[in-house]
Amino acid sequence: MAPSRRRLLGVALLAVAAAIFSLASTVTPGFVPGVETASDLPPFITPSPFSTFAAPALLAIGSVLLVAGAAGLAAVDLSARLALLAPVIGVLVALGFALGFARDPVASLHAVVESGTLATVRSGTPAAAGAAFGSAVAPVVRAATTEDTVALLVGAALLLAAVAAVPGSVFALVSGGVAGALAVGALWVVDPVTWRP
């Protein structure tokens, strides 16, 4: 694929990833900073009944597209090891949303230092686990198509770690896994040179 076409595709993928992360910020369970409760912690809310499904799916898709888009924009080969950044990004963004950084970064920083905050945020870890599980599909697929055994083992370990981290989050794991597979499938269609063996 010509470098100019890859860069255009990278820009498009980054734009889609940004839109998906923006949508994910509205459905990911998290703190509402700047609002005090009786416990001196901001309230931890689940924006909708569909958050259990929607948040991990959106975070997984956004993470996969972000890594693929960045590689395309830089016109570099998306190796399996570079694709391992997708689960890391998914977890960090999920935890950032859970702490309320998308709503009010300053108030969120204040809430982080309060006692009990991290225990409360554990309620939001299913979204992070689902995002990690779903976005780990990308490095596993890339490792399988490029025959990178080390990356394949690390990707498989990430899948298992996501399952073990929150054993009761079956819906989040399934949602994230399906979304991650769909994101990789879409990349097979729009960027076959990079994704297909």
Rank of each mutant, 00 (worst) to 15 (best):
A98P: 10
A98D: 13
A83L: 02
V76H: 05
G100E: 14
F101M: 07
V88T: 06
A83Q: 05
A94V: 06
G100M: 09
V106C: 07
A102P: 00
L92G: 00
L95R: 03
A102N: 13
G90W: 14
S79K: 10
F101A: 06
F97G: 01
L82D: 04
A83P: 00
G100R: 08
R81Q: 11
F101Q: 06
L84T: 01
P87N: 03
L84N: 01
A86P: 03
L95N: 03
L84Y: 10
G96Y: 13
L99C: 03
L82E: 05
P105E: 09
L99I: 02
G90T: 10
D104P: 05
G90I: 07
V91K: 08
V93R: 03
V91W: 14
R103T: 15
F101V: 03
P87L: 04
A98T: 10
L82N: 09
G90S: 08
G90P: 08
L85I: 01
L85K: 04
V76T: 08
G100L: 06
D104E: 14
D77E: 12
D104T: 14
L99H: 09
L84R: 01
D104N: 15
I89A: 04
L85P: 00
A102W: 12
R81A: 06
A80Q: 08
A98Y: 07
D77W: 11
L95Y: 11
D77H: 07
D77S: 01
G96H: 12
F97Q: 03
P105W: 09
V93E: 08
A102K: 07
V91P: 00
G100K: 07
A98Q: 10
A98R: 01
A102D: 15
L95D: 10
A83H: 09
A107W: 15
L78I: 06
A83R: 07
G100N: 12
L99M: 08
G96K: 10
